[in-house]
Simulated scan of single mutants.
Amino acid sequence: MGRMSSLSEGDRYVAVHDSARFTTLRRRQRTFTLWAGAVFTGWWFLASLLGAFAPGFYRQMIAGDLSVGLLVVLATFVLVLVIAAGYLRYARATLDPLAEQIRADLEGAPR
């Protein structure tokens, strides 16, 4: 993309927004969040449907006071943590280098 110091301040941001690098960055970010959102939403709907139409399933005891329902709730917390950790790893490896290139081009900083 090159340095954009010859453009006015507003035009530089418009040029970055219209650039292929920025489009690639947004597409990669949206792709990850779409899949992560679909996984979590699917899990949430499955858990809700089981609770609504098969409440006896959640009442089954596994060991002592541990029921299937409690395991589903705990698995939901684990799923949120896994998605967050996955996004951090994906962002660090894929999104951040591209964003750094865009920032460097915008600010005119040497790489």
Rank of each mutant, 00 (worst) to 15 (best):
L50K: 07
V68L: 04
D105M: 06
Y58L: 11
R21K: 13
F53V: 10
M61E: 11
V73A: 13
W35E: 02
R28L: 07
G10P: 14
W35S: 09
R28A: 06
E9A: 14
D96P: 02
F45H: 11
L74T: 02
S19M: 01
L50C: 06
A85V: 13
S19C: 10
Y90T: 01
G2P: 13
L66D: 00
A93H: 05
F40V: 08
P110M: 07
I102K: 08
L98A: 01
Q101S: 12
Y58C: 07
L95G: 04
R12L: 07
R89I: 02
I62M: 04
L79Y: 06
S19E: 09
V16I: 12
G42M: 01
H17Q: 14
F53T: 08
F40P: 00
A104Y: 09
R21H: 09
H17A: 12
R30V: 04
M1T: 08
A91N: 10
S8A: 07
T41H: 02
A15N: 12
T31H: 14
L7E: 04
G64Q: 12
R21N: 12
L98V: 06
R26H: 04
R92Y: 08
G56E: 06
S48K: 15
G64N: 12
L95T: 02
G56A: 03
V82P: 12
L7V: 08
V68Q: 00
A54C: 03
I83F: 00
V39K: 11
Q101K: 06
D18F: 09
A75R: 00
V16Q: 09
T33Y: 02
D11N: 14
D105T: 09
T94G: 03
A109G: 12
E107T: 11
F22Q: 00
F45V: 13
L70I: 11
A91P: 04
D105N: 15
Q101C: 00
V39S: 10
H17Y: 13
R30Y: 13
S19H: 13
S48H: 10
D65Y: 06
F77W: 14
S67L: 02
G56K: 01
R27C: 03
A109D: 13
P55H: 09
L46N: 07
Q60F: 09
A75W: 01
A75N: 03
V72S: 10
G37W: 03
T94D: 06
A85F: 10
T24V: 05
W44L: 13
E107G: 11
A38K: 05
S48A: 15
